[in-house]
Amino acid sequence: MHHPLTHIASFTKLSLVISFSLILGACGGGGGNTSSTPTQPDPVVEPTPNPAADLNAEFASYLTDLTDNHIIPAYADFVTKTQALQTQSHAFCSANTANIADLTSFKQRWQEVVQAWQKIQWLNLGPALDETRSLRIQFWEPGTDAVRNGVEALLLRQGETIDAVLISGVNVGAQGIPALEYLLYPPNNSDTLINASNREKRCEIATAIADNLYNMSSAIHSQWQTSGGNYRHTLITGINEFSSVQDAVEELVTLWLEHINIVKDDKILAALAVTSPGISQNAEHYLSDESLTSITTNLATYVSIFTAEGGQGFDDILTTTLAQQTIATQVNTEIAAAVSRIATINQNLNNYSSAIANDNGRAQLTALVDELNAIRDVLTIEFLQALDISTGFNATDGD
């Protein structure tokens, strides 16, 4: 059973907006007026836009708060989780008497790394792109055997020591999170890190992958710091690869929309397929069955992107600066519907394989796809128009 959504704090502003809308709806109509003259409802009056507002300054505030409240903390958490994984991998593989409980702890550290990455997976930008780190952290493409082939090729390299330096230069499929999943959750039960005949080599590769993940996460986090590459300054001021602050905002929205399409098309539809029982091997983490948990984390992250984790969010710009309460509420409502849907799926279905094979599960996942389309649609039309921004040409593709 997948545990329920744990990102409660980040939904504060979203919950307030939706609750307020529901209260307004509940207050309309009815009453004890018996006059023969119909009572005319009060006209809905939207706030007046602030004519003195500097939208560029508003965008700068958004970039600052998103960076400080969401991006840098997410990367810091990713470093913490990869370091714990690295420590656990070395402890496990150095113990000749490692048991099931030890392997379970190893898997738990890996699961924590997965979810830490899912929080920031959407931000395919800057330091994450340098040295193709995001691809090396998690190379995953439905229907390919790159991970299996990459790890199996490493297992055949018996005459040399596999370490983080070597791993960092091999095929991307053998470098990151999915490669370690293949070792921790092998397709064959005879190949576990406890009973495999080549346990020593498997552990050697596993620790090298864990080291590589820590090295990459540390490099990314460092480059966001003032003492490192100070990419924070690059983003919030819209310099270097950005032409302006607005350009930086447009790039983030493009990446957000692209990630919505990835969740919809690659994480759900590719596994759902056309008919039951679906294609479970196409799921993002089919060996470990972390797929639904990862989608849950992704949807929670969409709230963080929209609200800047309680800072100056897009919701504030729409509501306070642009007097577009209706659009802000609509975005909140569409995201909340998807969040609610994935929570229901997690509660009612034991795993992703059963979800894509079960009639009710397939119906729920299909409804989730519709809700993701609804998020994308409001973002690509009303949201972009209200903010007077545009996105990359392929950000809104897919249905």
Rank of each mutant, 00 (worst) to 15 (best):
E141N: 15
F92N: 06
L125Y: 09
V378E: 02
S61M: 06
L63K: 01
Q108R: 11
P51C: 04
R341K: 14
E204N: 05
R376G: 12
N261F: 00
S218F: 06
L103W: 02
V113N: 10
Q225T: 15
T132H: 10
A84S: 13
V165E: 11
T87K: 04
Q88N: 04
A343G: 08
L123V: 07
N230K: 00
N350Y: 09
Q138D: 10
G398A: 01
S15Q: 14
S353Q: 14
E250V: 03
T366S: 13
E241M: 05
E290Q: 15
I389Y: 06
G313K: 08
T391P: 04
S217T: 12
G29F: 09
I137N: 01
G392C: 02
G143F: 10
A283W: 09
G173D: 05
S35W: 12
A336F: 09
T396V: 14
F383M: 10
A179N: 03
D370W: 00
N171P: 02
W224T: 04
L255Y: 02
V114M: 02
E200M: 09
E251C: 08
Q347R: 11
A395V: 05
L257S: 03
E290P: 00
S35I: 04
F139E: 04
I381R: 07
E284P: 08
S197Q: 15
S227Q: 14
T104L: 09
P4Q: 11
A208Q: 09
S190P: 00
S89R: 01
Y185D: 07
A206W: 01
A76Q: 09
P41N: 02
V249I: 13
T396K: 05
D359T: 15
L272S: 02
L180G: 06
A174N: 08
P277A: 06
E284L: 13
E334N: 13
I72E: 12
E241P: 03
E200Q: 12
R232C: 01
S354M: 14
L85E: 04
D247S: 14
Q324H: 08
E241V: 05
S353W: 05
N348H: 10
I262R: 01
D388E: 15
I8N: 11
A74I: 02
A57R: 02
I345P: 03
S35Y: 11
D65L: 02
I389F: 01
D211N: 06
Y286E: 03
L85K: 05
Q83V: 14
P43D: 11
G32C: 10
V165N: 07
N350D: 13
I205S: 03
R133Q: 06
L379I: 14
A76D: 07
G28P: 00
I317H: 04
V331L: 15
F393W: 07
T296V: 05
I356F: 07
